[in-house]
Design a protein around this nucleic acid. Structure first.
Lengths: 229, 229
DNA sequence: ACTATATTCAATAACCTTGTTGAATACAAA
DNA sequence: TTTGTATTCAACAAGGTTATTGAATATAGT
């Protein structure tokens, strides 16, 4: 192949890949991806979740759709969006890892809003998995019921964050609790751990969230767990 | 945490992550990352490799540097750039996987320039690794000597592509040859396989390139292999 | 048909990104 | 000090991206 042809080939090839990169270059779209990683959502729900006008969200969804990273299911008036491929989440995960490792600014923002999290003594996924097998841990999913039912860590119990205060009695007081929610920066898990500790429970948070657990191929479960009312 | 504070937190946090995304949103920068994955390079060498003016490359390198994805080592007149973290390559890898899976355009471009590659019967990394253990294969690194010496698949022999024709006699004719170069779209490996087959060798290409092999944690080797002159 | 609602489209202005050009800087050798 | 060389900087024009706004479209229920 001639060098000039090769240049042209590389230019076109990398041009296509850069289309993927552009999708991940907007804070708004990253937020949408994070939410969609929990399960499908209508445009309105997404707008509510990320706090933007519907038209704006719709516009970003078109960008995601043009790059074929999301799928739409239309049902009456509603358009239900979802991630078209688990690889979309993997790219976001890789970016997250890179950012955490390289950008001091990220640590600064997290510390500013969430404080020093090292005393939270977070459990990583591999460790939780081992402990799940031995059974000496209560796994607590503090996401909304709908998200829990769309998929959760196998064996996890669901107490949505805003019901936690009233339902403390449902939790066995002797077993250590590991709380998780949408992702590593989801605030609810941090706050749940703080609330549980204040009531005398032993509680820690999972470092990551449900989509990360699933993405690792660890065991998940769909629907309502039978053992918990 | 108040919902409004939470919004602000998310906005700032995802804003930081989007900085990472922006770096990967330009075809030129993706090419630079691909080259830098082979080892460190001066600005001039990069400009030569990607076929852009030096000032343009320098400008893109500043973008990479601002996001702290590359490191610079200054030595006299020269600035030697390298990837600051293996996670940079992992993001690119994840994007590549996603693009290959979702964008038909990528397949179209590859087919247009490289033809139908299915008859190339490419070997994947896991398979090659197994066969390396049993030893019934010659692994051929067709990259320039300098890149080979900076790191290669353990046991691979180096015959730079433009010396291949003259050095065919160095290759044992009975053993199957697996050729690789910089990455899955590196043209040299395809052309080497074609050339070898034309001369009667049994030859296939490795699906990916050296950086991918290393990124998987498969065995590598640095410097000149002793067994090959 | 009419109304309400979810979503998308179109237009715009503000802003950001890119390639190009030529100059500035920094180091090394003569 | 002078000269040559590698790299970076600065300025600019061309083009691309984004949030906002209001209108258009499409579907469901009345």
């Amino acid at each position: 192949m001639k060098p000039s042809t090769k240049r042209e080939f590389k230019a076109r090839l990398f041009g296509e890949f850069a289309r993927i990169g552009k999708v991940f270059a907007s804070p708004h779209r990253l937020q949408l991806i994070e939410v969609l990683a929990q399960g499908e959502r209508t445009v309105e729900q997404l707008a509510e979740d990320v706090g933007s006008p519907v038209a704006n969200v719709s516009q970003h969804l078109q960008v995601l759709r043009t790059a074929r990273l999301v799928a739409v299911r239309r049902d009456g008036l509603y358009a239900h969006y979802s991630l078209a491929d688990p690889r979309v989440f993997r790219v976001w995960q890789a970016m997250r890892d890179l950012g955490e490792a390289r950008l001091a600014e990220i640590d600064a923002v997290v510390t500013e809003y969430l404080g020093n999290r090292s005393d939270m003594d977070a459990v990583n996924a591999a460790e939780l998995r081992r402990r799940l097998k031995s059974g000496d841990v209560t796994v607590l999913d503090v996401r909304p019921r709908r998200e829990y039912e769309a998929g959760h860590i196998r064996g996890a119990r669901n107490v949505p964050f805003d019901e936690l205060a009233e339902r403390l009695r449902d939790l066995p007081p002797e077993v250590e609790i590991v709380a998780y929610c949408r992702g590593p920066y989801c605030v609810f898990a941090d706050e749940a751990v703080a609330a549980l500790r204040a009531k005398g429970y032993r509680a820690r948070r999972l470092t990551e969230g449900y989509p990360d657990w699933r993405s690792r191929g660890f065991p998940v479960e769909i629907g309502t767990a039978a053992d918990f009312k």
